[in-house]
């Protein structure tokens, strides 16, 4: 009250106030469930949090009465640290759980484990699990807000949000930006979430990799398919290079790592040979010298560390918006 916009408001955030100020979802399970307006709201909120984390004092008190459990049933460095930092910057109470040293080893089920944690009065759960759909399973059976931090080969929504936010900050808009996703598309949750998000926001997407690592009928998602990395690089504005997931290669999809590098590895010489300057992204961890050479990963075209910085801001935005959506 007392602070309403009215006629004659010539200055200010032109028309932005008309956009929604609330997410349409209670959980962040995947990009597929989000509306373009949700994504835009997350981006807008991320920008303000990016300013917050660059202040001398990087903390705000918004989530001080909230407890968040980070439940990682699968290994992670970046995502877990990034979530934990985002939660702490928002003043939430944080508990961390990793399955390797827990009762999961004694045979406790996922639902029992999570319900026991929730019985300790936890409000939000960040979950990573090797089974696709695990976060959806929990969302349907528990009261907490669930955030998917990667479920098997299905989705990794916060990674897609931070990737797109990084592109947005460079290009000002996602509309018409050409993004090539290069590498193991078949096993990559990052690729799927990125495709959903980029298509929703009007970007053009091409996937590139060995034929064996590109799912059949991928074109039905509205993306181009390309087997030559040179063609892909020439086409794109942004190359999002994915990690070869050695732990998920249960059968052999290509003859050897050396051959993969020969055909699909990206190095500085290839980037220099293009007649434009493309942006190079990688969700990490990098297999240096496999999908990306060190000189390309450390070049000025690489925004890999910016992605990590933006990751904290984007996760703060997601936590903040979901917490406010009660």
């Amino acid at each position: 009250m007392g602070r309403e916009s009215g006629p004659g408001m010539a200055i200010g955030s032109n028309g932005q106030e008309k956009l929604m100020s609330k997410l349409s979802v209670k959980h962040l399970l995947g990009i597929k469930d989000l509306l373009p307006e949700d994504i835009q709201l997350i981006f807008d909120t991320s920008s303000t949090f990016k300013e917050v984390i660059n202040r001398p004092i990087k903390k705000v008190p918004s989530l001080r009465d909230i407890t968040v459990a980070n439940m990682f049933f699968e290994n992670s460095t970046r995502t877990r640290l990034s979530f934990e930092l985002a939660e702490k910057r928002l003043s939430a109470d944080v508990i961390n759980f990793s399955s390797s040293n827990s009762s999961v080893k004694k045979g406790e089920t996922l639902l029992d484990t999570v319900n026991n944690v929730l019985a300790m009065k936890v409000d939000m759960v960040v979950v990573r699990h090797s089974s696709p759909g695990a976060p959806h399973f929990l969302a349907a059976r528990t009261k907490a807000n669930i955030i998917n931090a990667g479920d098997g080969t299905h989705e990794h929504p916060t990674q897609a949000l931070l990737d797109a936010f990084t592109i947005l900050q460079k290009y000002g808009s996602l509309k018409g930006v050409k993004v090539a996703i290069i590498g193991d598309i078949l096993h990559s949750r990052v690729a799927l979430s990125n495709i959903f998000l980029l298509k929703k926001m009007g970007a053009e997407v091409m996937v590139c990799g060995p034929n064996t690592l590109i799912p059949r009928h991928i074109e039905s998602l509205g993306v181009k398919k390309e087997l030559s990395v040179k063609v892909a690089l020439n086409w794109c504005d942004v190359a999002n290079v994915l990690r070869i997931q050695l732990e998920r290669q249960d059968t052999r999809y290509f003859p050897s790592l050396r051959e993969y590098t020969q055909f699909f590895g990206i190095n500085k010489a290839m980037l220099d040979s293009l007649d434009k300057r493309i942006m190079v992204m990688h969700p990490g961890p990098i297999n240096r010298g496999v999908e990306l050479s060190s000189d390309a990963a450390d070049s000025s075209q690489s925004v890999i560390l910016e992605q990590v910085e933006n990751g904290v801001a984007v996760r703060m935005a997601v936590l903040y918006l979901l917490a406010g959506n009660n």
């Binding site: 955030s13 106030e17 100020s21 609330k22 709201l41 807008d44 909120t45 920008s47 303000t48 300013e51 917050v52 001398p56 705000v60 008190p61 918004s62 009465d65 909230i66 928002l90 903040y320 918006l321 917490a323 406010g324 959506n325 009660n326």
Partner: peptide, 27 residues
Amino acid sequence: LDITFFRDDFRRRQEPLKANETRMPFI
């Protein structure tokens, strides 16, 4: 100065508060 994240009515109202830009070019 944007005060959205410092308000005491977060989660006590229907909608989360939308933040605005903070621009403090000095200490």
